[in-house]
């Protein structure tokens, strides 16, 4: 009897000891895991801070040297004494190519989304949708190389002469579509950019189109609307915010796209009224000059990078806020 009791208490105390140890191990493991995840999450914020700090530090000499004049100077002469560096032409090129790209990509992207959600036979939806998504997967250097070797010569021999002849002698338009045709031009870069951001617009438009309650569309079809009328009067008004958000997201991508543009824009720091003339963008200027730059030249390229980051940050933030508003509405 006593033996058993002794034995029993020995077991009990050993058990309690193990339990405490196990619970402590659990508690420690819990804490450690919590803090690992929390610190990782903070790292995301620190990345943003790090990017801003390193860009500002790197561009400080250029900010001190040029001040706001940096934004209004067109000349880019890094080897002059002293170097004269201005951001006007890369900023112009960045904005212009992105705007033209959006003019191509927004209607086509929405058109594809309408096709996929309203017109396409069910069996073809997946393969076509996947093909468009794969377009987004192709690395941007492949687009650049392809534009350089294949698209550039084709455009310079067909599309460009067509527009140049079409608008010859017409005021304003004649200058915008002025000759001569060229393999490397703002227009070629815009077209490639447009194709690159197309999948983003299609993907988001398709997702928001799917949120339209079927009963709304059925009601419209029921009173005799055509497909186009349903899309224009029901689907698009219902999904306006989402489509705009998607377009802004694509704009943010287009503004910062680098490799696709660098090959085919010509890297010329001159502002020309013609969209068939070579130009440059912020990202193309950085990509082609940064590795061999130093001193004030490098600092100015950093400042260009800072400008680009600020520009894309605001565009992307606006896009995310719009899409967030949509999510809240859907959550209700």
């Amino acid at each position: 009897m006593t033996e058993i009791a002794l034995h029993g208490s020995a077991v009990e105390s050993a058990d309690r000891y193990d339990r405490t140890r196990a619970l402590n191990a659990f508690r420690f493991g819990d804490r450690a895991f919590y803090w690992t995840t929390r610190i990782s999450a903070m790292l995301v914020l620190m990345l943003l801070g790090g990017i801003i700090i390193s860009l500002v530090v790197g561009s400080w000499p250029a900010i001190v040297e040029y001040g706001s004049g940096f934004l209004t100077t067109q000349r880019w002469a890094p080897s002059a004494e002293p170097p004269v560096l201005g951001a006007l032409s890369p900023v112009y090129g960045t904005v212009l190519t992105s705007v033209i790209a959006m003019m191509i990509a927004v209607p086509v992207g929405i058109g594809i989304a309408v096709f996929l959600t309203e017109l396409c036979p069910l069996w073809a939806r997946r393969p076509i949708g996947m093909a468009i998504e794969l377009l987004a997967g192709i690395p941007s250097i492949i687009y650049g190389m392809w534009g350089f070797f294949i698209l550039g010569p084709i455009l310079a021999n067909t599309v460009q002469p067509f527009f140049i002849d079409l608008f010859e002698g017409v005021p304003v338009l004649g200058a915008i579509f002025g000759g001569p045709p060229s393999y490397l031009s703002l227009f070629n870069a815009s077209l490639i950019l447009g194709i690159m951001v197309l999948p983003f617009i299609t993907a988001i438009s398709r997702d928001v189109f799917a949120t339209v309650p079927p009963v709304l569309k059925e009601a419209a079809y029921g009173v005799g609307c055509t497909t186009w009328e349903v899309v224009w009067h029901v689907v698009l008004p219902y999904t306006r915010v989402g489509v705009i958000g998607g377009a802004m997201l694509a704009l943010g991508r287009a503004l910062g796209e680098t490799m696709a543009v660098t090959f085919i824009i010509g890297n010329s720091f001159r502002i020309s009224p013609s969209i068939f003339a070579p130009g440059t963008t912020i990202s193309a200027a950085i990509a082609s000059e940064f590795a061999e730059s130093d001193g004030l030249h490098q600092s100015s390229l950093m400042l260009l990078g800072l400008l680009l980051f600020v520009l894309t940050f605001f565009v992307l933030a606006a896009a995310r806020l719009l899409l967030l508003r949509l999510e809240k509405k859907a959550g209700k």
Binding site: V44, I286, R320
Partner: peptide
């Protein structure tokens, strides 16, 4: 806030990441 910043970093130009790593 972290989610929002992360979404922006998701589409931030990759060349900016290059500049950041160059400096850092």
């Amino acid at each position: 806030v972290i989610r929002f910043i992360n979404d922006i970093l998701l589409s931030a130009p990759s060349i900016i990441i290059g500049l950041f790593v160059y400096g850092a």
